[in-house]
């Protein structure tokens, strides 16, 4: 894959490049990746797999710092405040929702995007005892009586899993603000509620629900992905109901604080690309059920922009205003 650079940005930063040092000299000491999530879990696991591949491919020493407090706010803040020398970068994931709940105000300009390496699609699931067998049936019922239904967001509401589903529902003509959205502390609390009959639906990633799906206790109605998800080929795509491909869920990328010099970003991008293309990375991600989604710096910047716009639209419809 060939990565084109953002030439305009490169030109503006060029005068400072001499002092910042050339990419060939980077890094001369161990680098740190901040993971704004606790040990264990998707963000931590995928980053560790990536870090190990970077160590193998590039010979760097990578140390990982877990800062999961405040739903990721603390980790992202340390990332934004880190010295922009490229020695401290972090895991970047959908961050725009924090603004609307008043927790923090991160914008694309606070980060230097490096590259995206993983993505998991959101899906809508229901319990096995639910009368709904298809996504269309469920959406029609919710459209008719939105206030009757309770949907669990997995994490806090207004974040990675529920925002894409709510966006899809808005396109379907559903008044999403009338639905009762139930926040939780991760997928497990939601699955627990779903299985015990506490909620009607849940927005969640398929790998996290796989145990209960294979137990026949949870039924996936549709996944927000343009193509079938490996390992879950039987789950219908949301696009079939909507009439156009639907893509929504989490993305995981590397990013630094704003102001990291361009050639250091390039060094990181190259390292990430080599790691992502390596067999060890691909195999590890496959066994662990994580999708590989490579995006170079430029595409990641575009993704971040559209993520901020989508979040703004959905959050306004859900009744959060800012």
């Amino acid at each position: 894959m060939i990565c084109s650079r953002n030439y305009l940005l490169a030109l503006t930063v060029a005068p400072f490049m001499v002092s910042a040092g050339w990419a060939a000299d980077f890094p001369t000491r161990p680098v740190t990746i901040i993971v704004p999530a606790a040990a264990g879990g998707g963000g931590d696991t995928t980053t560790r797999i990536l870090a190990r591949s970077i160590e193998q491919e590039m010979g760097w020493t990578v140390s990982i710092i877990n800062q999961g407090q405040g739903g990721g706010v603390v980790g992202l803040t340390s990332m934004v405040n880190a010295e922009p020398d490229g020695y401290t970068v972090g895991l970047l994931f959908p961050y725009a929702g924090y603004k609307y709940t008043g927790q923090a105000d991160f914008a694309g300009a606070d980060f230097s995007p490096i590259a995206n390496f993983n993505g998991d699609s959101s899906s809508l699931v229901t319990s096995a005892s639910s009368p709904f067998e298809t996504l269309a049936g469920a959406l029609d019922a919710i459209k008719a009586e939105p206030s009757k239904y309770k949907i669990h967001c997995s994490g806090g509401c207004g974040s990675v899993w529920d925002v894409p589903v709510a966006g899809m529902m808005m396109d379907y003509g559903i008044e999403v603000e009338k639905i009762t959205w139930i926040p939780g502390q991760g997928a497990a609390t939601g699955l627990q509620e779903l299985a015990s009959g506490g909620v009607d639906f849940q927005t969640v990633s398929l790998p996290e629900a796989s145990g209960l799906i294979s137990a026949g206790l949870v039924r996936p109605l549709g996944v927000l992905s343009p193509e079938p998800v490996p390992g879950f080929e039987d789950v219908p795509l949301a696009g079939e109901v909507m009439g156009h491909p639907v893509d929504g869920g989490t993305w995981r990328a590397l990013g630094g604080p704003a102001g990291v010099s361009d050639d250091i970003i390039k060094a990181w991008e190259d390292a990430a690309q080599k790691a992502v293309q390596s067999d060890s990375f691909k195999n590890a991600m496959k066994t662990a059920n994580f999708g590989v989604k490579w995006m170079p710096t430029e595409d990641l910047a575009v993704l971040m922009k559209s993520h901020e716009e989508d979040t703004a639209r959905v959050m306004a419809a859900l009744g959060y205003s800012k």
């Binding site: 879990g41 797999i49 497990a188 145990g211 209960l212 137990a215 662990a288």
Partner: peptide, 26 residues
């Protein structure tokens, strides 16, 4: 049985199991 962590320690166990391709579940 279901891949649902009972506490922070088993949350780590589950992610290690996933990495190993030993996917918890029935």
């Amino acid at each position: 049985v279901f891949g649902i962590p009972g506490d922070a320690i088993t949350a780590i166990v589950i992610s290690v199991m996933f990495i190993k391709g030993v996917n918890p579940g029935p």
